[in-house]
């Protein structure tokens, strides 16, 4: 079993949140886990592209055209659910 498959949801969330905070130069107190990250200007289209790259590197999660929707990406919580679901399928 690979290391990324052993991560629980809290660990996944911590890593994703850390990445988004760093990428958007934001402070942890300013970003709610349900905040709409594109609507609030935390990430733009290149930011989303780099986030997808990060998900591939950190969790070996690949994103396809049809998975690129608000349900999977509009907030930290949505991204965490998306990644966790993908990882549970892999395991």
């Amino acid at each position: 079993m690979l290391l990324y498959q052993m991560k629980n949801t809290n660990e996944v969330k911590a890593e994703i949140k850390k990445y988004i905070l760093e990428a958007s130069l934001s402070d942890v107190k300013d970003v709610d886990d349900d905040a709409l990250i594109f609507e609030n200007g935390l990430l733009d289209s290149m930011g989303l592209l780099f986030l997808i790259e990060f998900l591939g590197e950190a969790f070996q999660v690949e994103v396809s055209d049809d998975e690129l929707n608000p349900k999977n990406f509009e907030s930290i919580n949505n991204i965490v659910s998306f990644v966790s679901n993908k990882l549970s399928v892999k395991v």
Binding site: L36, F38, S45, L48, I52, E53, D65, N69
Partner: peptide, 26 residues
């Protein structure tokens, strides 16, 4: 749909087959 636009690469083979993938950042 409220999400930023991301580009895909689409390749069309001579026989008309189409392969399309989301483009990684790099």
């Amino acid at each position: 749909e409220n999400i930023p636009a991301i580009f895909s690469i689409t390749v069309i083979k001579p026989n008309g087959d189409v392969v399309s993938k989301l483009l990684p950042a790099k």
